[in-house]
Design a protein around this nucleic acid. Structure first.
Lengths: 251, 251
DNA sequence: TAGTGGTCTAGACCACTCG
DNA sequence: GAGTGGTCTAGACCACTAG
């Protein structure tokens, strides 16, 4: 059985390899909205893997909103409205890219501040502990759409500079490559707000205009809070998300 | 092996039964934030199931933000900030209940309208096709917090009445029990908006005040769009969501 | 090195859908 | 009834983490 005809075998599990193949088939348009994929047993035979491995690939894709399976009927391609709606961390650049816009940023300030009571509690540090605060204007096609106000803990003595961020291309890439920052999960809290004078000036809108306010806490792989970010978006900005079925009584 | 000592065996799969047990252990506080669960092999032995079944239970819980597993380290209880943050359909009543508030509603109108171009496209019906439109004020502890404006297709000739909704307790329960409405997935689109005169009057705020605007399209099990709902929330309302790690290059 | 989760297999049987 | 996905098993081996 051990056919080593696995062309993309760069330390990648077989189910991921299969998922990539199926994903490409869909992306190429060979399979479109609500069309059925081949049955699991057929995929297993065709790609010379066990049915369990096929199922793992399918579940992997289902979690990402690419396909869905119905008991007794088959497995189908998710309609395009749904596909790609799953949110991931660092959503701004990704979302913007997905929608064909060019994401950009203007760094307003980088400073070390003492943690406020509110933020120190969230980040699980002592009030007054030194935090790095980075404020930025986010842009899409050079138009300002949002303000990001990020607070995070850096290793003692570590510093961060404007040119470093620009060189890395992204604040998060820099934090990950240089400071062991490894986001695993995040919790977001959205609400409506009104622009104050400063927001208005930076976003080129009027004071009092409505804003989408999003607070985020990012957790490390060990589930320690490592970042708090306050984001404010103008009313043209869209936050998309997908809600999967509540398959069971577990809240 | 077939130990039939499965106390909660009401047509429930074994992995769900195990998940329920583990979930209860956590809810009771026997296991708290970031504490390790017993190893998979031990759970398998203790509960007399295969390791694969244990893993299925753990993945089921992980999807719901209750636990997380780290390769080589173990499986741990998610911190409480994260637990219960996963969004499901019919989020309003659930969220409100979770946060200790009493969800309520005031039905403003129930009418049959012709589908607008925008909505007909989304719901995949012809422009002008008859749709049922239900407008409601949602309340928490009797205070108005949001407006829901739902549009959906009903079987030909079917009608819906205020008393029916009130009897069923929930619009969605009624749609599910009486009209074969079976939501499987939904896509939400959030942005900031400003209250117009009518919004303001209904929500007891001032015109121009910021609102959290949320559009939702609900899909059936066959992934046909069955409902469009426009929701507007006052600025004190919080929309919480969890973002899982982007585990892999698949967008 | 010991212990943990991650991947994979081959086969069995059940539950559901649809003609 | 034929075909589909869903559950479950028993065992093997790999990959990662930590003392």
């Amino acid at each position: 059985m051990k056919t080593n005809l696995n062309p993309t075998d760069t330390a990648q599990p077989r189910y991921r390899w299969l998922a990539d193949i199926l994903r490409e088939t869909i992306d190429r348009g060979m399979l479109t909205d609500n069309q059925a994929l081949p049955p699991e047993r057929e995929l297993a035979e065709r790609y010379e893997v066990s049915r369990d491995t096929v199922r793992k690939a399918l579940r992997f894709m289902e979690e990402r909103g690419i396909i869905y399976s119905d008991h007794g009927r088959g497995t189908f391609v998710s309609p395009s409205i749904v596909r790609g709606t799953t949110r991931f961390i660092d959503s701004f650049s990704q979302d913007t890219g997905n929608r064909g816009g060019v994401p950009g940023q203007r760094i307003l300030s980088i400073e070390t501040v003492g943690a406020s009571m509110a933020i120190s509690t969230l980040l699980n540090v002592e009030a007054g502990a030194p935090l790095v605060r980075v404020r930025r204007v986010r842009t899409i096609d050079d138009a300002p759409v949002g303000l990001h106000d990020a607070h995070f803990v850096l290793p003692r003595g570590a510093k961060i500079s404007r040119s470093q961020i620009e060189r890395a291309g992204s604040l998060y890439k820099l934090l990950m490559s240089e400071f062991g920052f490894e986001p695993a999960e995040a919790v977001e809290n959205l609400c409506a707000g009104a622009a104050d004078a400063e927001d208005a000036q930076l976003l080129d809108i009027a004071a009092g205009d409505p804003l989408l306010v999003c607070e985020r806490i990012t957790l490390s792989d060990r589930r320690q809070p490592i970042e708090y970010c306050l984001m404010k978006y103008v009313s043209t900005y869209r936050y998309r998300t997908r809600i999967a079925k509540h398959s069971g009584g577990m809240s």
